[in-house]
Amino acid sequence: MFEKLKAIEDKFNEINEKLMQPEVVNDNSQYAALMKEYKQLEPIINKLNEYKSVKSSYDEASDLLDQGGLDKEFKELVQMQFDEAKQQLPSLEDELKLLLLPKDPNDEKNVIIEIRGGAGGEEAALFAAALYRMYSMYATSKGWQTEVMSENETELGGFKEITFMVSGDGAYSRFKYESGVHRVQRVPETESQGRVHTSTATVAVLPEAEDVELEINEERDIKMEVFRSSGAGGQHINKTSSAVRLIHIPTGTVVECQNERSQFQNREKALKMLKSKLLDEKVRAQENEIASNRRSQVGTGDRSERIRTYNYPEGRISDHRIGLTIYRLEQVLNGNLDEVIDALATADQAAKLASQQSE
């Protein structure tokens, strides 16, 4: 670990020197690339410096205690310094190990989220709307922007499906744990006997794709169809064929967008959704090749897997991947998701550490 840290420290110092060179300062692209790398390494260097300071304090106190001949009062101070440093070192080492874990290259990206009502008919569609509201409020609390890309709304205000983008630094790093089947247990408003019903919704979380990551021949590989929008939007949106459906011929992947007034705008959004879907499929194919590594992580689990239950009568939310149960359902549904996501991220890091140490 400390060999890795020494190499990182040397690289950090090298970048620091380059950032002070006039030719680098005047080259916007090079300066931006170096600053990005500098910011990525800075937390590791700060933690390493903290570790070095505590280690120095530990070594100094240890040497003084070994030498002996200290008066009682001074010895007590030195012993206190030694004990405090000894207690801090293991946790600092653990923090350094976490900082050295390989970063998910998608973590800083914007994210596209698809929510679909599953088993349960209208109740499932209403639950899909509740999940969309929860994620939108969470995004707002982080200062991120939310934009609906496609939606199929029911008469009662639910969603058969809704696709939206969340834009902001680190959006994917937080939402990536949400992929999977979400289950709700509650008494529907239409239930006269007061019986609890169980419904589901599926959530898919896709990092926004960059053009450089995928090679797509739009003329050869993509077929475009236009149709009239079916959702709300006034006379214009319903009378013109502005909605767009894109089909990726090699894979059969289909996306639709109908929320914009013009065909061009809908095509641009649909293309963005299609590229993100194809990137996600590419990443999942790579993960399947390393099955043992995937099983050791909480990560972005299989979308057919039931990951979480929202129990309204008990005010309970349970995440089945890590055995987490909390009784603050209302707060979570109002966008206070950090407690759940933090627990998932911690479990994921612990699994990766354990996997790394067993190799």
Rank of each mutant, 00 (worst) to 15 (best):
K4P: 09
I8D: 10
D10I: 07
F12V: 07
N16M: 13
L19P: 03
M20H: 15
Q21G: 11
V24N: 08
D27W: 14
Q30I: 12
A33C: 03
K36M: 08
N46V: 00
K47W: 04
K52H: 08
K52F: 08
V54C: 06
E60L: 15
A61P: 01
L65F: 11
G68W: 04
G69L: 14
D71N: 05
K75D: 08
L77C: 07
V78W: 03
Q81P: 09
Q81Y: 07
D83T: 05
E84Y: 08
K86I: 02
L89T: 11
S91Q: 13
L100S: 05
L100Q: 01
N106A: 11
N110W: 04
E122P: 03
E123C: 09
Y132H: 09
T140F: 14
S141A: 06
S141R: 08
W144I: 07
Q145D: 15
T146P: 05
E147F: 06
M149Q: 09
S150T: 14
E153F: 10
L156F: 07
G158C: 05
F159R: 06
F159P: 10
F159M: 07
K160Q: 14
T163Q: 10
S173C: 02
R174Q: 13
S179Q: 12
H182R: 03
V184Q: 06
R186S: 00
E191D: 02
E191R: 04
G194H: 02
V196N: 03
A201S: 15
V203L: 09
V203W: 09
E210P: 01
D211N: 11
E215K: 14
N217C: 09
E219Y: 12
R228S: 10
S229P: 08
G233C: 01
Q235G: 05
H236S: 15
I237F: 05
A243M: 08
V244I: 01
V244N: 10
I247C: 09
H248F: 05
H248A: 02
I249N: 13
P250I: 01
T251D: 09
G252T: 05
V254N: 11
V254L: 13
V255T: 07
E256T: 15
Q263D: 03
K269I: 15
K272F: 06
L274D: 04
S276R: 00
K277A: 11
A285Q: 14
Q286N: 13
N288A: 15
R295T: 13
S296I: 06
G299E: 12
D302W: 06
S304L: 10
E305Q: 12
I307H: 06
I307S: 02
R308T: 04
Y312H: 14
P313H: 00
G315K: 03
T325D: 04
I326Y: 03
I326F: 01
Y327E: 12
E330G: 08
N334M: 10
D342M: 11
A343H: 01
L344H: 12
A345R: 15
T346H: 14
D348E: 00
K352D: 00
K352L: 14
